[in-house]
């Protein structure tokens, strides 16, 4: 980098330039017209604009799927990783770079089938990040195969007679895994979607949102029952629900489709980020002021 560039940099103390929606808009999105994922993207850009996170401080990580194309469409740091493994990749970022805002976007197959184990363990470890699952009940990118959330009887190219395997209930799954923030929303309700994303970002720990996001190509009308615009019902979680009550959350999650929307569960269990930082602080208090090589010299002193 040339010297002149440094000189033209805004100095840190000067008011940072406002981050606009235009700044944040990345590649032209390639989803089918009408795909629910557009709405998730639009609201995410709105969130970034509202929060004014500097572009360089945001990292979006995704696996593989239609929904996982997400990072290309946002003008911040982005990672397009492998199918199902975005969460551990994002964990590597989160644990080593506490200064960054880490987001993971993906599909139902990515998060509950091939990456199911990672979802469980990232929840259990309570790694600080925000995870949005765009649940369309189908494998979109590979063109209409059964997904782990496809309702029984779904006709797909791998279940031409209708699916026979019991679908996963994402909210129950996340509760059992120990996720510390679990919300459910839909791409058809922009205000609610933004509200849930904001709450997840404000949560210290692993914040997960299951967002119904219709695949208009392979699953048209699948979520009609969840939107008043298509004569369905978008029923909010009752205000009386105690979000720290795991059993109550489990009961709400068991309601038949379209079920409830809102925050099912929230707890303030310490994050892995914090617990590991505490270990470091405790260990470093014993080696205070020592250079790295001196610490190793001391260890080698015992290996003679």
């Amino acid at each position: 980098m040339s010297e002149s560039v440094i000189e033209t940099l805004p100095v840190a103390s000067a008011a940072p330039r406002k981050v606009t929606r235009k700044d944040l808009t990345g590649e032209h999105s390639t989803w089918c017209p009408g795909c629910g994922d557009f709405s998730v993207l639009a609201l995410y850009l709105k969130l970034l604009e509202k929060r004014q996170f500097p572009q360089e401080s945001v990292a979006n990580v995704a696996g593989i799927g239609c929904s996982s194309r997400f990072p290309y469409f946002v003008q911040t740091n982005g990672v397009h990783y492998i199918h199902g493994r975005a969460l551990p990749f994002a964990t590597g970022i989160s644990l080593t770079r506490p200064d960054l805002h880490v987001f993971v976007f993906g599909g139902d197959g990515d998060g509950f089938s091939i990456g199911g184990n990672h979802t469980t363990h990232t929840a259990r470890k309570n790694v600080n990040m925000t995870y949005v699952v765009m649940d369309n009940w189908v494998y979109g990118l590979t063109k209409n195969q059964t997904s782990p959330t496809s309702p029984l009887g779904s006709k797909t190219k791998t279940d031409i007679w209708g699916s026979v395997d019991q679908p996963i209930n994402p909210i129950k799954q996340l509760l059992a895994a120990g996720a510390t923030f679990i919300a459910r929303t839909s791409s058809t309700n922009p205000n609610h979607l933004l509200q849930m994303m904001e709450a997840a970002v404000d949560h210290e720990g692993f914040g997960v949102i299951e967002c119904l996001s219709e695949c208009v190509h392979f699953n048209p009308g699948s979520f009609d029952a969840a939107s008043p615009r298509t004569n369905g019902k978008f029923e909010l979680i009752p205000a009386s629900h105690d979000v720290t009550d795991e059993e109550a959350a489990y009961k709400l999650a068991a309601a038949p489709f379209p079920g409830y929307f809102g925050i099912f569960y929230k707890s303030s269990r310490p994050t892995k980020n914090k617990l590991e930082a505490d270990i470091i602080t405790a260990q470093q208090s014993k080696t205070q002021g020592k250079q790295d090589w001196e610490i190793m010299q001391a260890s080698f002193g015992k290996m003679k």
């Binding site: 990580v61 990672v79 970022i93 990672h118 363990h121 260990q283 470093q284």
Partner: peptide, 24 residues
């Protein structure tokens, strides 16, 4: 931790390599 670092025991080898790549 003495050097300010972390080593994570993961759920499996795929998570491990992914986490290391994320840190890289």
């Amino acid at each position: 931790p003495k050097y300010g670092g972390v080593f994570v025991q993961c759920e499996d080898e795929i998570a491990s390599v992914s986490m290391a790549l994320g840190a890289s």
